[in-house]
Design a protein around this nucleic acid. Sequence first.
DNA 1: CGACGGTTTGACAATCATCAAATACAGTGG
DNA 2: CCACTGTATTTGATGATTGTCAAACCGTCG
Lengths: 245, 245
Amino acid sequence: MKALEAGQPRPLSGNAGLVLNRLRKLAASEGHALDVLPRMMVRTMPARSELICYRQGIGSVLALQSGWAAHVELLDDGRRQFVQLVLPGEIIAYPNPGRSLASSTVVSLTPVEVASWQLDGEPWSLKAQMAALGASDEAERRCMINQVVRIGRRSAYERLAHLLLEIRERLIFSSVSTDHEFPLPLTQEIIADALGLTSVHINRTLQLLRQEGHLELRGGVMELQEVRRLMRIVDYRPLFPVPSH
Amino acid sequence: MKALEAGQPRPLSGNAGLVLNRLRKLAASEGHALDVLPRMMVRTMPARSELICYRQGIGSVLALQSGWAAHVELLDDGRRQFVQLVLPGEIIAYPNPGRSLASSTVVSLTPVEVASWQLDGEPWSLKAQMAALGASDEAERRCMINQVVRIGRRSAYERLAHLLLEIRERLIFSSVSTDHEFPLPLTQEIIADALGLTSVHINRTLQLLRQEGHLELRGGVMELQEVRRLMRIVDYRPLFPVPSH
DNA sequence: CGACGGTTTGACAATCATCAAATACAGTGG
DNA sequence: CCACTGTATTTGATGATTGTCAAACCGTCG
């Protein structure tokens, strides 16, 4: 039931960058202005750490300063399902008034830096923070809906392409990647457990997508080709409203 | 984008029963006392109505006074996935400060009565209401996690049994059914679209479960046999903490 | 009765899982 | 720098689960 033990917590010096930036954007989308966050602490943890544990109390806001994580569920015969990925910059969990127990377990998929801070401050600041967290929650919910539809009603081919498109969009939103390339530090087995497939099948599907010229993957960097076309092919709908131009 | 049009809204006379009862229980689990709700309106709608529509504004709390509904997603080639069922007594949607747009479409699966009321009142009452809605949200999130794991990592046999067990538990929690019987007014096609399978396969799996003596289904009433055993077989974990005794 | 929606059945095909082994790759210590 | 170890990827062969298509059946309602 303990978690978040590795690494010494240290105050965050320079860039609260990713996290703060993303929360600003989310707050803005709700019509709130978010300037600064309370003093952050950062803790480094290796891959496969439990960042939070189901039913554990949540005292502060936790976010991924860097690295990847996921909400995970295990069946008693060893089957594993990643319910939802948590990408760099995104919120891991936060204390929601009234329900401050974690509703699922979150593990790191890579080495991570976990930022944490108390949810407080001046009323106006707090309001902006809550708005940002609410918007984050909302986005998370949409991702989970995507996840259900992907797994429930799409072929392996579609699942994989759709997930990659979603990762791309979320990473772009958090300003960690540009239009056509993004880091993908996941093993094929992890991808499999995120998509309800086997790693063998992920491997073959990946090859197929590569053969058909939809993607290139070298050294943990994914490059999707002709994103718009791929979106049409697998019926991908943007999570965030597209800026009209 | 319009919704909730059929039926005349009428004030709820007698029993706000199910909904109120369930919210009371949820509030209590958060340490709040919920006595009464603001004046409710009830509206009757046929099956297949859109109760709320994705991105539609939500002005009041909506709950299922009676009947069944579901959050639904459609792919452009006609594939359908029910992301989550909404059972009698449960909340359909409510205006969350900061994010008051519906995050998915909800349709009725049977004729329904939709109760609605404004989220207001004395501060202490409002607080209790928010606590109840928060707890409802939390339960919903757990259901969605269940849904992802079911679809992602379980066989057809397990999926069906697991879903039935979940429906049973939720209906018991809302006091609409007793220990060993519950109404199941869903077609096999609806169940299929909830489980990411085809109706043909649902049919065969149902027969199998029946043959093995796990269930009996007559006239829309489901009777699960030896619930504890079935729970063990499909690794079902209760949504709500079991009252210790 | 006829029509309609839902269920049931059968034959067959496709997708995806399983198992096992080979290959590539990264880190570690000599 | 190289062998050595462990983990991740790739490949092949085979099988199980689930989907597809089509038709028959059944109950209800007009």
